[in-house]
Design a protein around this nucleic acid. Sequence first.
DNA 1: TATTCTATTGAGAAAGAGAATCAACTAATG
DNA 2: CATTAGTTGATTCTCTTTCTCAATAGAATA
Lengths: 160, 160
Amino acid sequence: MAKPTKELDILKQHLAKHNLKLTRQRENILTTFLKMEHVTAEQMYRLLAKKDPHIGLATVYRTLKLLCETGLAQEQHFGTQTQFDNVAHKGHHDHLICSTCDKIIEFENCQIEELQEEVARKNGFTIRTHKLELYGNPVLLPNGECKNCGRDLNVQLGRR
Amino acid sequence: MAKPTKELDILKQHLAKHNLKLTRQRENILTTFLKMEHVTAEQMYRLLAKKDPHIGLATVYRTLKLLCETGLAQEQHFGTQTQFDNVAHKGHHDHLICSTCDKIIEFENCQIEELQEEVARKNGFTIRTHKLELYGNPVLLPNGECKNCGRDLNVQLGRR
DNA sequence: TATTCTATTGAGAAAGAGAATCAACTAATG
DNA sequence: CATTAGTTGATTCTCTTTCTCAATAGAATA
């Protein structure tokens, strides 16, 4: 069995292995998916609809889930929204989220990643992926309220 | 102005500051909330309904959100479910989630926490809270499929 | 305490994401 | 090219969360 090298081959192999079929829709979705770092199902649906107005939303959901099963995609929950990450884009980063304005700062920290590996190893696991989000505030008013949103942060800061 | 020391005082102060009113429902919800480490809105609703069958679900949602604004609660998204954490329960822990069986292992790692603080500090932030989730698998079949779920993990493991 | 003003409540409707259903369709196989 | 079994798309359904609005109830004031 020849070793597949491209994503389409990976999909084909997965389909064959599970008695599934390669359809026009599945191929289209994969092609579009590979061009991005991540998408939501809705975004994918709208993108595809431009070329194929008859594509069904259910098919998009089903196929993105399928891509997760092949290992080409990864489902990530971000707040209330679900996105599908393209595993091929290796540029991993974590997030520092401003609770004041919801601005997101991306960062990387190798030491943290190493410690994570260590934790996993101790528990007999191999990390497949991870998610690290830091939520914080930049500036506070003297009374403990966040400058931008007015939220009272005294409690979290242990000021009471 | 006397420094409030209890959660109810914190709530009262917040209500006063924002021209809101202290109601029987708000007091009940706070009382119940303080007994737990975390709840979902549904859970809270069912708990309250035992004593007050006429409580409205919308009120529960509104009040939990209000508690977040006072700083007593914190909204956390876990996969597809939303829970409200009791900030007073300091027992923070992170999660190692088995992608095979969805089992969740809790862990703590001070070194990671310190590095997080450092990242935040460098960016001029104070961490209010954070979320670290490691997703992994314990045992793989020789062909790269997960023993339990049959998912093909070759791609993620860089085997292709 | 009665009055008045405004915030709050609860029931149900509505919105949004996602899964389930099913008849019509189509890829794969011989 | 006929058969078979998986797939699609339209729609319905479910679940969570928010919205709406008339009735209600805090809180401030007289």
